[in-house]
Structures are given as C-alpha cells and as structure tokens.
Simulated assay, not measured.
Amino acid sequence: MKKILAPFLFVLLMAACQSHDGYTIEGTLEGENTDGTELTLRKYAEGNQLITVDSATITNGTFTFKGAPTNSPELYYIFFGKGQDNIPMIVENGTIEIEAQRDSLAFAKIGGTVQNELFYDFLKGSRVLSRKASSMNQDMRAAQAKRDTVSMNALREEYFELMEEAKDYELNYVKNNPNAIVSAIILYRVLATKAKENSEVQELYDALTPEIQESNTGIKIKEALEKDANTSIGAKAPNFSAPSPNGDQLALNEVMGKVTIVDFWAAWCRPCRQENPNVVKVYNKYKDQGLSILGVSLDRNADDWKKAIQDDGLAWHHVSNVQYFDEIAKLYNVDAIPATFILDENGIIVAKDLRGASLDAKIGELLQ
C-alpha cells in the first residue's frame, strides 16, 4: 500500500476558490545529495488511482512547478525520486511555498495561499497526534519483546483513546474552519467510511461556507447525502432491472413479496460467502410466509457468479450486470459488500445490513 504523508487523511479529493491566475509551486529542500533528484506532482484520479501531472528536478536545493488556472483547489502530492516519500499540498491558483528537509518530509512547511495555510494548520495538529501514535507503537513493540501483557493491554487502551482523540480533532477542525477545503475532504471521508450518522454529516456540511459547499468535494458530499437519503430507512426502494442467470431481464418490482431482501454480494466476496448459509437458512424458514430475496451480484465473471449460486444453494432470484460496482450499486449507494436492504410489501426500506440472528429476528417480526 502506498504511504501518504498526511496523517489521518485517507480518501483525498479536492476543493473551492477561484482565480484567473495559474498556480506556481516554489519549494526549497535542504539535505545532502538532493540536487538532480526528479520530483513528480501527482493527484488522485477516478478510481482512487494516483496519476502524475507534472515533473521537475531539484537544482541548487530548489524546485518549481507551474500550471494553468484551476477552477477548484485539489490535494496533490510531490513525490521524491522513485520512492514513496512525498509532501501533500493543495494546488490552487497563486504561489504555493514549501520548505522541507529531505530526512523529514513529514514535517514540511506549507503556505503561500489561503487553503495551504489552513491545510498546514490542520497538519500541525495531526502531527502531534501522529507522534503520540508513533511513540505508542515503539512502546508496544518493547512490551511485546518482553511479553509484558499488562503494559500491552494498557497501551492498547491508550491507543484506542488516541484514535478517539484524533476523530474529535478532525471533527472540531471541520466545525471551527468551515472555510477550509480540508474540512470538506475530512467530511467526505467521514461520510464514505460511515464514521458518523448522515444527519451529523449533513449538519456539518450545512455549516460550511458557500464556497466550500460549491467546491468539487462539497458537491460530492451533497450528492452522496442525497443518494443515501434515497436508500435510507423509510425511503421507497428504487426499482431496477438486470439480467438473470438465464439472460432474461428481471426487475425488483416483479419479485416483491410481503418482505423482500435486496442482497448485494459477489462470488469473490468472502464475508458474503460466509453469510450465505445464514441467508439460506432464513429463506428456507420464511419463504412460504412471503419472504422474497433478490440477489444482486457485483461479479465481473458470469461463470463465477453462476457457480457460486449453485455451490452455496442460493435458491432465490438473482440478477447481475457482471460489471463489478455497477449502476445498481451506485443507485443504492453501495460501496462495500455484503450490503442488504429489507423492504416491506410496499417497497419501503425498513432495515439495512442485518446479518445472522438479527436478520432472522427482523424477518420474523415483519412477517408476524
């Protein structure tokens, strides 16, 4: 996995503010044997893939990148040489200034533009927490070497407390800096990882400045919230159709029962396959009372999909476009599987993502 030097930031997308000038990145790098090192300017593209946007070479301890005007600031990374060492910064119109030491890129100073000043302010607080985490990791390794279980358990508790502190730090930063694009980046990740209820995310989003709400990241947050609202408990489940294993088109509204489970899964998904025996048990128990299941496979290979149906004994309705996380998954805001939606006879979503005994209990309750 590629290591990104931005503590507590994982999915990193983009932002707001406009200018008619382009951007210039002016950097200084102190350290031995740095001259001649090639740098690459990269960012995340669709599919969460890093792509190279530009390159430069360190000369006399300095480097420069220049680019055309951008309508929306975005998080980029400057990578050093062929390794994974890098410095994160916000590309926005204006002159961005970077000061770094080659042996401590994680502590580079970033500034020169409004969003980079705000980003650097966020990073300073994150780095304090990172140092605490690093110290704990060292202490944990020492305790493990000594087989000191008392210290290990104490350190584990401290680590969990530190993770909570990190979450609080990020959310407090969002609340206190509604004009920062990093606030939108944090909020988008919180939404994507479901770290907070959507109602809390909505409240924080509503407090962002109009400029940040209208940024690319802000728009993504808005769209995700609206899409999730369409598949939240109490909402009418969106109808869809896709090919069945025999190639016929089959629609959700054609297989509705008194209670219907829409089950997103795939042959390659180990947790899905592990849960399938329980779903089979629930189906066999309640199918004569009005339970219907529509399996939606996110497989890429039709043969794998059909074989898994046979191997696992999934004797209910199935559809798949055989296109991985396709338009149906997007329609239901599904970005991880297994994912299940339980519908009443009117197609209203009454529960989500239940497994094991909880699934059995809910279906029994609805069919009473």
Rank of each mutant, 00 (worst) to 15 (best):
E327Q: 15
E327C: 04
E327G: 05
E327P: 05
I328K: 08
I328Y: 06
I328R: 06
I328N: 00
I328S: 01
I328L: 06
K330M: 09
K330P: 03
K330E: 14
K330V: 11
L331Q: 14
L331G: 08
Y332N: 00
Y332I: 00
Y332E: 02
Y332K: 02
N333F: 12
N333W: 08
N333C: 13
N333K: 13
V334I: 13
D335E: 15
D335S: 10
D335H: 11
D335W: 09
A336V: 12
A336M: 07
A336D: 11
A336F: 14
A336H: 14
A336G: 14
A336P: 05
I337K: 08
I337E: 09
I337D: 03
P338M: 07
A339N: 07
A339M: 12
A339G: 10
T340E: 10
T340K: 05
T340D: 05
T340H: 01
T340A: 06
F341E: 03
F341N: 00
F341G: 05
F341C: 09
I342Q: 12
I342S: 04
I342P: 00
I342N: 09
I342T: 14
I342H: 10
L343D: 04
L343W: 13
L343E: 07
D344P: 01
D344G: 01
D344C: 01
N346V: 00
G347D: 06
G347T: 11
G347I: 03
G347Y: 08
I348N: 01
I348H: 06
I348W: 10
I348Q: 14
I348F: 13
I349G: 01
I349Q: 00
I349A: 00
I349R: 04
V350M: 11
A351R: 03
K352Y: 06
K352T: 08
K352F: 05
D353Y: 02
D353V: 07
D353I: 05
D353N: 15
D353H: 11
D353P: 00
L354Y: 12
L354N: 04
L354W: 13
L354G: 08
L354M: 13
R355H: 15
R355S: 06
R355M: 12
G356R: 08
G356E: 07
G356V: 10
G356P: 04
A357N: 14
A357Q: 15
A357P: 04
A357R: 13
A357M: 12
A357K: 15
A357G: 10
S358V: 10
L359D: 00
L359I: 04
L359W: 00
L359H: 01
